[in-house]
Design a protein around this nucleic acid. Structure first.
Lengths: 212, 212, 212, 212
DNA sequence: AATGAATGAGAGTTCATTCAT
DNA sequence: CATGAATGAACTCTCATTCAT
């Protein structure tokens, strides 16, 4: 699925890139604080460091900002994850590392994740498919790694199970952000990763020792 | 934690109850469709079947509606769950039934769950604690059932694990609503319950047979 | 000029009288506190000790309340003044007493005077003439007393002067209410009366001693 | 006492000044006609010649308009009076001229005076002290002029009397506006000035001739 | 390319008034 | 006669968007 183009009046691509980066950075902070709907375009412009007039040289509507923010966050997460996943070799150990890495990214990008998670529904109908597609892609990445493990004989899972486990991993990564009020009190990131990994993987692995 | 009172100008408690039910019902439909922020008070009044003036006889601000909706949904879910959980006897079978029942409730109340899940963050700061407390209570209910199983020797879990598993169950219940675009395509509710239960419980149970 | 009739649905004249007295009393307190426009009909009803529905059994519009309040205050002041004035015998001494008495009434009815003075302009166009007429009557009362003094040879004033002095006396009586923030700090009522009387009367009196 | 700043979103000070002048002019006309409470913000905007949105670029609340109006009128009156008073040389003649000039200003600004006089009480609690202070200042100006006359031996008045006479002058100036329904029928401005001056000054002056 | 003043549709909320009980 | 729930017109204020400079 191709990227939705956000119209800019300004021609200089370099400048567009630069301004949008400023914009996204400012917007994330604001959205985290007060949510998309309670944030005004003026505030976004100000946080980005330019005037309201200038803001509208780089977007068409306020929702474009939200789209750009979501798009940016997905890309960021996906890019990071991609690199990690390419290194995965189908061993249980590498799967664990991938998951740990993903949770670490979720922790690093807590604010962004929270914003995205809470505000996607505010996207217009025509931006939604693109965004859902992104989610599918990301879940797909986990599916790929897990499938490798299964093919490798390290895990015993049906296709349906693979898919659901992937969803679970993904959502539990987000959970670290959106239920931080409960989880951060009880666990450090390390503990959280450790526990979730135990619950998710160890138990679905082919238990060699017990089988003997 | 005591309930936050929402002020009503109308004295007749019966009537207040009745009107608020109408209001909540209408509001849920609208919030599901367009979200809290895009729904106007006039639309809420109309959906509830009375005039804008009447609406404001039963609430003080628009956010009161959101609070009432959230409060109602929590109570509904909790009440249903409570009954089920009281019957649980600490066997694995009854735990499975409890989870299945919870997922069924989540399915029955899909719209409500989605709304609540997406709009809680729109609540005013002073309503949030009450709502988070509700979540803690509900997670606590699962903790209780699971603890029973552990004490019964049916499961082998540390306290930390019990807590996390409870969070997972709860979130995976909501998942069925908020990721329905992905999950409902792949699984029926029965399959979803079956799969999640397998992943969650069977693997953490004390595997009697394999231990022999 | 005849009294403007305020319509009441209730027939029992006694009751109407009673209810309106309650109403006026409550309204004065409220109007003093927050002004006519910021006072709601509900508040008036409550302060009067009955329901909003009952309030509207005794008036037709909110402005009727204001009219009744103004009418009541004028009547009260006028009645008191009338008695005093009838006793006036055209001596300077009795004029002074009349003025002192008037200022005393203004002091006793501070709240009412303030309300009336500040809210008359809120009266509907068709109530205004009646109210202005009341003012003319009251000024006229002073004119009469002063004229007596002039005829008695106690004062030397033209008709124009008599009229203006009467206005001055009247306004200076109100002043004691509406400039209380300044005057009450500096003077007691006695001092105020003394000083104003000096300035007003002594100096326009036929100065027998100095003429000798 | 420093001026209360009324917030404007617009930066250009010149423009703010200009727009506010338009606003005040329009508002005075409307307030005179229907009073502050019966005038809507839209009407004010329209009378000022711009949209409701623009109005709110220059004020924060409707009450700001009232404050600006009052502030403007006080400043206007005070400025005019200041110039006149500086020229006063302590002779009775110059005092008379000052008073005459003040009454002339009150006549020129009839509408404004009426508005201010009738609507000050509608100001928010936090604007009131500033406004009362203005009144004190203006009364103070008269006190100064009269004191000069006393020091000059032209008048024989105690301090208390000076203060009260100043209040009287001030209120009688306003009277010309707020009792115009009675006074304008009977007197021309000249006559009014003449009569009030006689009553106020001639009689408190040291009557040289009669003392001989 | 950047600015920010201007716009006005539309939002939340209030409250005088009515009328069935 | 008394009540108070219901009504909706009207109000203040906000804010996404435009466009002349």
């Amino acid at each position: 699925m191709e990227k939705r183009e956000v119209h800019a009046s300004v021609k200089d691509e370099r400048l567009v890139e630069k301004r949008r980066t400023q914009m996204i950075k400012g917007a994330v902070t604001l959205f985290k604080e007060k949510g998309f709907h309670r944030t005004t375009t003026r505030e976004i412009a100000k946080a980005a460091g330019f005037s309201i007039g200038t803001l509208y040289e780089y977007i068409r509507t306020k929702e474009d900002v939200l789209y750009l923010v979501c798009d940016f966050i997905y890309d960021e997460v996906q890019e990071k994850l991609q690199k990690e996943i390419e290194q995965s070799d189908g061993t249980l150990e590498s799967l664990k590392l991938t998951i740990a890495y993903f949770y670490q990214v979720m922790d690093d990008m807590q604010d962004e994740v929270l914003v995205m998670y809470q505000e996607v529904k505010a996207l217009t109908k025509d931006a939604l498919p693109y965004v859902l597609n992104k989610e599918i892609q990301m879940v797909g990445m986990f599916e790929k790694v897990i499938t490798k493990c299964v093919e490798n004989g390290e895990l015993l899972l049906t296709e349906n199970q693979i898919s659901l486990v992937s969803h679970n991993i993904f959502v539990q990564g987000q959970m670290w952000s959106f239920r931080r009020w409960a989880l951060h009190k009880k666990y450090t990131l390390q503990e959280y990763v450790e526990l979730q990994t135990q619950l998710l993987i160890q138990n679905v692995s082919i238990q060699k020792t017990t089988l003997i």
